[in-house]
Computed example of a mutant assay.
Amino acid sequence: MLTDPFFYAVAIPAVILVGLAKGGFAGIGVVATPLLALAVGPVKAAAILLPLLIVQDVVGVWAYRKTWDKGLLILMVPPSAVGIFLGWALAALVSSSAVELAVGVVSVLFAVQRLWAERAVKAAAAVEAGPARPWLGALCGMASGFISQIAHAGGPPFQIYVLPRRLPRDVFVGTSAIFFAIVNWMKMPAYLALGQFTSDVLTAVAVLIPLAFASTWAGVWLVRRVPAEGFYKIIYVLLIVVGTKLAWDGFFGLM
């Protein structure tokens, strides 16, 4: 694997995309697993990426350690643990393709609706935050954990609840960084129990760690240079792209 040029041809862009996502451009990392799977298969790809995600989480959490929403984490993290457990328990019964299709369609519809609302008022700042609805936050937290365990795509449910809160840019990114850092650590026991961290997987992780650090810092640097008023529009557009990708993969996976 480590001597295969094709492995690096897909692994390098995959890690860079995840790094940019961890740096603040939420969502684009969803293509990393299927991209890396072209070289090593989906199971090994997920096993390689999880330790890299945890390394990149350290950078993201450190960079945004002073800007995060405690209330959102208290609301959404415990249900995410329930979702991760359900994803592990039901892995043999739940089709990842069906989950991807449903999440993709909902994500696209949600993002299009929000962009239309912002266009209607001519300014993102004029869009009022939606009602808090804690029950929806708990449900989205559980869905995020479940989908992250099943299909490694837990970002859209988290964003569907948090984006309408209209948090300041850095608070949104910091809250997302801490939430998914916790989620990724909670996924580790299942991977360890399944014996997926083989010697070749850990060697690949060690080789890619420097790129993981560098790409995440690059994401942080870029996000902080995006005007705050345009940041949410970028995230909504990325959510449409991610949702379309998930729906596409899910649809053809069911065929």
Results as ranks from 00 to 15, higher is better:
98 A>Y: 00
149 Q>Y: 13
244 T>F: 06
167 L>G: 06
155 G>N: 07
35 L>N: 06
226 V>M: 02
54 I>K: 11
227 P>D: 03
5 P>T: 01
21 A>V: 01
198 T>E: 03
39 A>V: 08
105 V>A: 04
253 G>V: 01
131 P>R: 15
120 A>I: 04
185 W>F: 15
173 V>S: 08
112 V>Q: 01
155 G>H: 10
244 T>P: 03
5 P>W: 06
100 E>Y: 04
219 G>K: 07
17 L>C: 09
139 L>C: 13
233 K>H: 08
97 S>R: 01
144 S>P: 10
189 P>S: 13
214 A>D: 00
24 G>K: 10
227 P>L: 10
40 V>T: 09
2 L>E: 05
116 W>P: 04
43 V>Q: 09
242 V>A: 03
99 V>T: 04
90 L>D: 01
102 A>S: 08
162 V>R: 14
6 F>Y: 08
116 W>H: 09
223 V>E: 00
119 R>S: 03
175 T>Q: 07
131 P>G: 14
6 F>A: 04
236 Y>R: 12
89 A>L: 13
213 F>P: 07
243 G>K: 03
60 G>T: 02
146 F>Y: 06
138 A>M: 08
134 P>Q: 10
74 I>Q: 07
181 A>T: 04
56 Q>C: 10
119 R>F: 08
25 F>P: 08
16 I>M: 12
185 W>L: 15
214 A>V: 08
96 S>F: 13
117 A>D: 00
20 L>Q: 02
145 G>E: 00
57 D>R: 15
195 G>E: 01
61 V>Q: 04
203 T>C: 14
62 W>N: 04
99 V>W: 01
37 A>Q: 10
185 W>R: 14
148 S>M: 13
56 Q>A: 11
242 V>M: 02
24 G>H: 07
133 R>E: 03
196 Q>V: 06
49 L>M: 14
91 A>H: 13
99 V>N: 01
86 L>F: 11
196 Q>K: 15
173 V>P: 11
168 P>T: 03
128 E>H: 15
37 A>M: 08
242 V>D: 00
111 A>G: 02
216 T>W: 10
74 I>K: 14
64 Y>N: 03
97 S>M: 02
46 A>G: 15
16 I>C: 14
136 L>Y: 14
240 I>V: 02
243 G>L: 05
164 P>I: 13
112 V>A: 05
66 K>P: 05
88 W>P: 12
212 A>K: 06
223 V>C: 07
33 T>H: 11
243 G>A: 02
92 A>L: 09
13 P>I: 05
38 L>E: 00
63 A>S: 08
30 V>T: 04
18 V>G: 09
88 W>N: 11
252 F>S: 05
